[in-house]
Amino acid sequence: MENLAHSASFDSEDKDAPSKPGIKHLALGRLDGVTSILPAPPLFIFMYVRKEALLSSQIEGTQSSLSDLLLFEADELPLVPLNDVEEVSNYIAALEHGLDRMRGGFPLSLRLIREIHGVLLKAGRGASSQPGEFRHSQNWIGGTRPGNAMFVPPPPDQLMQCLDAFEKFLHTDDRLPNIVKAALAHVQFETIHPFLDGNGRLGRLLITLFLCANKVLREPTLYLSLYFKTHRGTYYDLLQRVRMAGDWESWLSFFLEGVTETADQAAKTAQDLLRLFEADAHRIQDLGRAAASAGMVHGLLQRRAIVTIQKAAQELSLSEPTINSALGHLISIGIVREVTGKQRHRVFAYQAYLDRLAEGTEPRRP
């Protein structure tokens, strides 16, 4: 790991440094700054976390959409296999578990990584792959067996030596910018591949946790998996080129470009959504006496994007007829759309909000 750090190290002020990490820090700073001035930061964090969870899971082949996830969280049946949505839901729980532990003073460590993995695979397809336990058998990447695999990670008897070096690297006080360390740590984790399942999702989750642990981000607002999904072939190819040829420079340029692109996009999304909420709030004021209850439902939809009458009544402590009437008014002015076409068990979406959030999250088709 010391060689890893040495071979990829450079001065953050060096004009020839790959992709100018200082500029990437500015992009993250803009994103963090936008988050800090939002009138309701938890609202955006709630959705950004779900977007990252969804995108990271889609890289592994799940077919869940953002609407499916929000339906699942509203206790409604999604339109895809339940396992797909459970994987995304587990990712959210795993990230929140890691952040809660770190906020309580627990370091980003092998112990915490095992805990997070246990949450990530607590249900669904990965539940039989030893959640929370480092592997005791050989795994491989690509192919049907180690003999024809694209890459074979370290054998079990060398696993802890590699993981100990990885943990030391996370906490080494060196001259590397933290954003560069996050990029290097991701490759190293994916190369060690310490679990039987879930390594890709956990490795991407660790990027966010590392940036939050080192105060680069105050909140998990960077959905970098959007960039990885968009450039999925290049992403996997560059990971392999580091392993086989030591091509750190190409990986770092790719990673840092992704940080800039995604951070700028996330900041723009936040600003666009603020304008949408404000414009719709003004339209609601024109409803007259119905504005009060419609405004409350509008506030709930900003937090959820998809609701049912029953859930809205429960969360807002209003009667179901009042919620039904408020939703009717919001439909009449084009803010809300009923998405089932049914007379019972109806589901309502804040469509413009959902569409803006869902950009880039369409499932990857085989």
Rank of each mutant, 00 (worst) to 15 (best):
Asn199Asp: 09
Thr191Val: 02
Arg114Thr: 12
Ser7Arg: 07
Phe255Pro: 01
Ser325Asp: 12
Met150Thr: 14
Ser325Thr: 13
Leu301Val: 02
Pro194Leu: 08
Ile23Glu: 13
Phe210Trp: 01
Ala123Lys: 11
Tyr223Leu: 12
Trp251Lys: 10
Tyr223Ser: 15
Ile207Gln: 14
Ala27Pro: 00
Asn139His: 04
Leu301Gln: 02
Leu206Arg: 01
Gly118Cys: 05
Asn139Lys: 06
Pro107Gln: 03
Glu320Asp: 13
His193Cys: 06
Met102His: 06
Pro78Lys: 06
Ala358Phe: 00
Glu87Phe: 05
Gln63Glu: 14
Leu274Pro: 00
Ser250Gly: 11
Thr35Gly: 08
Gln138Val: 05
His282Ala: 12
Pro146Tyr: 05
Val259His: 02
Arg364His: 06
Leu184Ala: 13
Leu316Ser: 09
Gln351Lys: 14
Gly132Asn: 08
Asn324Cys: 02
Leu108Met: 11
Leu159Glu: 08
Gly98His: 01
His298Met: 09
Gly61Phe: 03
Thr144Ser: 14
Ala149His: 14
Ala291Pro: 03
Phe254Asn: 08
Leu256Met: 12
Gly98Cys: 02
Tyr48Met: 15
Phe134Glu: 12
Ala74Ser: 10
Gly105Tyr: 05
Phe254Ser: 08
Val119Tyr: 02
Ala53Ser: 15
Phe169Thr: 10
Cys162Val: 03
Ile306Ala: 07
Val49Phe: 01
Pro155Val: 04
Gly341Tyr: 05
Ala94Cys: 09
Ala267Leu: 04
Arg135His: 09
Glu190Cys: 13
Asp280Lys: 11
